[in-house]
Design a protein around this nucleic acid. Structure first.
Lengths: 173, 173
DNA sequence: CTGTCAATGTACCATATGGTACAAGAATAA
DNA sequence: TTATTCTTGTACCATATGGTACATTGACAG
């Protein structure tokens, strides 16, 4: 299953035929179905595994209390757009699309991701509206990054956001 | 061709088989290929038509000089996320994905859209960095809107952005 | 050694897809 | 009227896909 997920990540999408998947994993379509029980089951297991992995990554990237929002966001951006994570980013984006194309599983995945990010950011930016805006900016930055390959645009925009937030008079909630 | 584009818009994607397309349009796959010359040609013509239509919409939505950034952005958001434009929005988003999946045509489409929006916004926000950030925020807001169906989140975030920009001391360039 | 059962390859099936061959109208120029 | 060209339906083809049938292999218990 690890190999399957790796293959999906390498493809940057769940749109990978069983034959293609099998070739990458080094087995046959016959075996994939035999072991895992069909296309849907494979996608389901791969998604669960991906969720686990993302949760683990999130737990690992816990920042010490008092870290500035600026450096948290910068670190998240670096990690999200690093070359070795490009596949994961593509896959997650593909799932986002599926979540509005009617896939209940993808919708669930998307919602959990949103929740996790929200929770994390709220620790460093204790204003729900601001976090909401930041998440949208981050999503948009990712999209532009994927479309243009330019990491700097997103970096600048996020930097700008955090700089303004740092200067804002704030009523802590 | 108008009908074909309408069908793509209704599907919210270019992933519509010739058979499916033909059924919606009220003809046969045979005829589509005969008249337009194959799948690729149909997509190409539909995209060109869509580009024309979006350009026209943009020209129509010219705002009088002096309009505040806030109302420009609010109007764009209303228009972009209106129910009757949902199909167009889905289609454009699908094209954005294709632009990073290797489709040169989609990439060109994406770049032209970006250029047009950039140009428009620059008239009301004469700071390229701010426009860059605004565009990313808008993209992200659209994504969240598509995934959640909630227009308010994006509205709030954009409102927030324009409110802050209005208060910022600015060196006009 | 022999029976049993999991593991696996090969060949197949049904469906969907983009596309073509061909023939039968339907219109139109001569 | 006749020859030609345009239009269109039907049947087909090749490929890809998820999935199954069946036979073969190999290990292991008795």
């Amino acid at each position: 299953m690890q190999c399957c997920l790796a293959a999906f990540i390498r493809a940057g999408s769940l749109d990978l035929s069983l034959d293609g998947l099998a070739k990458v994993v080094g087995t046959s379509k016959r075996m994939l179905i035999h072991y895992f029980g069909g296309r849907d089951a494979i996608e389901e297991k791969a998604l669960s595994l991906l969720e686990d992995r993302l949760r683990a990554r999130f737990r690992a990237s816990v920042f010490p209390a008092g870290t500035t929002l600026r450096s948290v966001v910068a670190a998240l951006w670096e990690q999200t757009t690093s070359a070795e994570n490009r596949g994961v980013l593509l896959l997650v984006t593909d799932l986002t699309r599926r979540s509005w194309s009617g896939s209940a599983r993808a919708k669930h995945f998307f919602e959990e991701q949103q929740r996790a990010w929200n929770e994390l950011l709220l620790e460093f930016l204790p204003d729900p509206d601001a976090v909401e805006a930041l998440l949208q900016l981050f999503q948009g930055a990712v999209l532009i990054y994927l479309a243009t390959g330019d990491r700097e645009k997103g970096k600048r925009a996020l930097e700008r956001f955090t700089a303004i937030e740092a200067k804002m008079p704030r009523i802590k909630k």
